[in-house]
């Protein structure tokens, strides 16, 4: 077999799947963003129109919600990174070789408990007079339901997705590098800050792909602990059904897609995408 034929054999199925099926589906969706829906019948009117995008640009609410969603996604990502970094470092470099796999399992186990159940557990934790309020000194003392609660709960849900790549990155990092730094007189924190963190940036960015995109598209956690806030996912979800307005939902969906594509292209050079 010539290399060409072998390459074709390897790539045929995946390319058909990802390019034709997946990209095709996405492309169809975005074409429909230029369509409209007949107010009477709910039928899709397949005629080119920029109306949906005009609405999105004209109404302040869409800009507000977009900024809020990006803010939430960024906050969740930062919170996850801040928590994951020391935990992963402990797991990879401090814990004994025997404890290591058990710690990894301990961090991963929550992934098996349903997302919804965990979110609802947080609703109970955050309730007025609930455990968190009690801990902080009485009803109303905790964050309650709202934007801070959304950030907290999303960070909780996606934390393992950040710990995992960071841990893997740290484990690959040879101990000799850290020892060299120590030999040259750098104290523990200095080595951590000046050597470890820069070296595992690609791993952190990889984890951030997960935490950022999962937060950007979420609409269920917001419903459970978000109080009266809404994120871009809620708007898309509301419009998919509302008067069956798929075109408007598709137009709204271009916002998170654009943000993610820009993000991916920007981080590709760092090699982060291979760390997922």
């Amino acid at each position: 077999m010539s290399p060409r034929v072998r390459l074709a054999a390897l790539l045929a199925a995946p390319v058909v799947w990802l390019v034709v099926a997946y990209l095709g589906a996405l492309a169809t969706l975005f074409v429909s963003a230029f369509w409209t829906v007949n107010g009477f019948t709910g039928a899709t009117v397949k005629r080119f129109s920029l109306g949906n995008f005009e609405t999105i640009l004209r109404e302040d609410v869409y800009r507000t919600v977009t900024l809020r969603s990006v803010g939430v996604a960024a906050a969740v990502t930062v919170l996850c990174a801040v928590l994951a970094l020391p935990m992963a470092y402990f797991m990879a470099k401090v814990a004994s070789a025997r404890a290591r796999p058990w710690l990894v399992i301990a961090v991963l186990t929550p992934l098996w408990a349903s997302y919804l159940v965990k979110a609802y557990a947080w609703r109970v934790l955050l309730a007025n007079g609930g455990p968190l309020d009690t801990l902080l000194g009485g009803p109303g003392r905790g964050p309650g339901y709202g934007l801070p609660a959304v950030v907290l709960v999303l960070a909780y849900l996606w934390l393992p997705y950040m710990i995992l790549p960071v841990y893997a990155g740290l484990e690959r990092l040879p101990d000799s590098v850290l020892e060299a730094s120590a030999d040259l007189g750098a104290r523990g924190w200095r080595t951590f800050r000046a050597i470890t963190v820069p070296l595992i940036v690609p791993s952190i960015v990889a984890g951030a792909v997960f935490t950022f995109s999962l937060s950007l598209g979420d609409y269920i956690t917001v419903q459970i602990v978000g109080g009266k806030t809404q994120l871009i996912g809620n708007l898309v979800y509301a419009n998919v059904g509302a008067a069956n307005n798929l075109p408007f939902a598709a137009a709204l969906a271009t916002i998170p897609v654009l943000i993610m594509v820009i993000y991916l292209v920007a981080v590709r050079r760092s090699g982060a995408l291979e760390e997922l």
């Binding site: 589906a25 996405l26 997960f210 598209g217 979420d218 898309v236 969906a253 897609v257 993000y263 991916l264």
Partner: peptide, 15 residues
């Protein structure tokens, strides 16, 4: 995996 699930969901659904 990087695009929000709701986008993947509605795209696959309509396709």
């Amino acid at each position: 995996i990087a695009l929000p699930g709701i986008v993947t969901g509605i795209a696959l659904d309509s396709a």
